[in-house]
């Protein structure tokens, strides 16, 4: 699947993960610090994802 990581300004290709939780593990992202978006829908940790999905990861932590 195509994953756009907004705060790192990069796009990665990830294959073979079945859930959002696995995807975040693979990308070594703390689920507390991001939202996972597919289209207009927010996905919880257990939500199923498929290789043909396009996923956006948004940071939730702002600083300063």
């Amino acid at each position: 699947m195509k994953v756009r990581i907004r705060h790192q300004r990069r796009e990665v290709q990830v294959e073979g993960v079945r859930t959002v939780g696995e995807l975040l593990d693979r990308l070594q992202l703390n689920p507390e610090t991001v939202l996972v978006v597919r289209g207009t829908e927010l996905l919880t940790r257990d939500a199923r994802v498929a290789d043909e999905d396009e996923i956006e990861i948004r940071p939730v932590v702002s600083g300063g």
């Binding site: 507390e32 939202l35 978006v37 927010l42 940071p59 939730v60």
Partner: peptide, 13 residues
Amino acid sequence: AERETAAYAVLRG
């Protein structure tokens, strides 16, 4: 929580 305000922003567009 900060994650909740971000979720609200996304869901409200």
